[in-house]
Amino acid sequence: KYLVLALYDYQEKSPREVTMKKGDILTLLNSTNKDWWKVEVNGRQGFVPAAYVKYL
């Protein structure tokens, strides 16, 4: 498993997404889509914009 760092705040806009705050450390679950990565944060799984996170 990889960890990624939230570069920006992101507010979920659909039930498939998750909210994150700048500085959050997220567990990367799937990065096959170049635009949306599946992550786990605070016990929830969902998608965030790939451009908003970077590998640690």
Rank of each mutant, 00 (worst) to 15 (best):
N42K: 11
L3I: 10
Q45W: 08
G43R: 05
I25K: 05
K13Y: 05
L3R: 11
L5E: 14
E40V: 08
V53Y: 01
A50I: 04
K1G: 12
Q11P: 06
K13R: 14
T32W: 11
G46C: 02
Y55N: 09
G43P: 01
R44P: 01
E12N: 07
Y52Q: 06
K21D: 04
S14G: 13
W36D: 01
Y55E: 12
L5C: 09
K1C: 12
V18R: 02
K54M: 15
L7N: 04
K21V: 09
Q11A: 13
D9C: 05
G43D: 08
L7E: 05
I25A: 04
T27H: 11
K38H: 13
E17K: 05
N30Q: 11
K22Q: 11
L5W: 07
V41W: 07
D24S: 08
V41C: 10
L7I: 12
A6D: 00
Q45M: 11
K1D: 09
L26P: 01
E12M: 13
V4H: 04
Y52S: 11
W37M: 05
L29A: 03
V4S: 03
K34N: 11
L29S: 03
G23M: 03
T27G: 06
E40C: 11
K1E: 10
K22P: 04
L26I: 08
Y2P: 14
L7Y: 04
V4K: 01
L28I: 06
L5K: 09
D35Y: 15
K22I: 06
W36A: 02
L56A: 08
L56T: 08
D9N: 08
M20F: 11
V48Y: 00
L3K: 12
E17M: 05
R44G: 04
K13W: 04
L5P: 00
T19L: 03
D24R: 02
G23E: 02
V18P: 01
F47S: 03
W37Q: 02
K54R: 14
A6F: 03
N30T: 08
W36R: 03
Y8W: 11
D24E: 12
L5Q: 12
Y52W: 06
S31P: 08
K38R: 11
K54V: 15
S31M: 12
Y8Q: 14
I25T: 07
E17L: 06
V39T: 01
G46F: 05
Q11R: 10
V41A: 11
V39A: 01
E40F: 07
V48H: 00
W37H: 03
K1V: 14
K22A: 13
Y52M: 13
K34D: 13
A50M: 05
A51N: 13
Y55T: 13
L26C: 11
R16C: 15
D9A: 07
L26G: 09
F47G: 01
Y2R: 14
Y2D: 11
N42T: 06
A6G: 03
A51H: 13
G46W: 02
P49R: 04
K13H: 09
D9Q: 03
L3S: 08
Y2I: 15
P15K: 10
Y8G: 06
S14A: 09
D35S: 12
N42D: 13
L28F: 04
F47Q: 03
Y8P: 01
D24Q: 14
L28E: 00
A51P: 08
Q11K: 12
R44I: 08
R44M: 08
P15I: 09
D35V: 15
V18G: 02
T19K: 04
S31I: 10
R16S: 14
R16T: 12
Q45E: 12
E40Y: 07
D9F: 03
L29R: 04
N33K: 06
G23D: 07
L7G: 03
V39D: 00
G23K: 02
Y2M: 12
W37C: 06
S31Q: 10
K13M: 13
T19G: 09
L29E: 03
F47T: 03
V48S: 00
Y52G: 07
W36S: 03
L28R: 01
W37N: 01
K21T: 09
E17P: 05
K54L: 14
E17F: 07
P15H: 11
Y8F: 14
L3M: 12
N42W: 07
I25Q: 06
Y55V: 15
A51F: 09
T32F: 10
A51Q: 13
A6P: 01
G23Q: 02
K54Q: 14
M20E: 00
I25H: 06
S14Q: 08
G23R: 02
Y10I: 01
E17W: 04
G43V: 02
T27K: 12
T27F: 12
K54P: 01
Y52K: 07
V53L: 15
W37V: 09
A6K: 02
K22D: 03
L26H: 03
Q45G: 07
P15R: 09
L5I: 15
I25N: 03
A6R: 02
P49A: 02
Y52D: 03
L56K: 06
F47H: 05
K13V: 09
V4G: 10
K34I: 10
Y10E: 01
G43K: 06
N30V: 09
T32L: 10
I25F: 06
L56E: 07
W37Y: 10
E12P: 15
A51Y: 10
E40W: 07
R44Y: 06
Q45N: 08
L28P: 01
E12G: 15
D35F: 15
Y2S: 13
K21Q: 10
R44V: 09
K38G: 06
V39R: 00
V41Y: 11
D35M: 14
K34P: 15
L5H: 05
Q45S: 12
Y52N: 05
T32C: 14
E12A: 15
V53R: 00
Y52I: 06
K54I: 15
L5N: 03
W37I: 09
V18I: 15
L26E: 00
L26S: 02
V18F: 12
Y8C: 12
D9W: 03
D24N: 07
L26R: 00
L56C: 11
S31F: 11
Y2G: 13
V48M: 01
V4I: 09
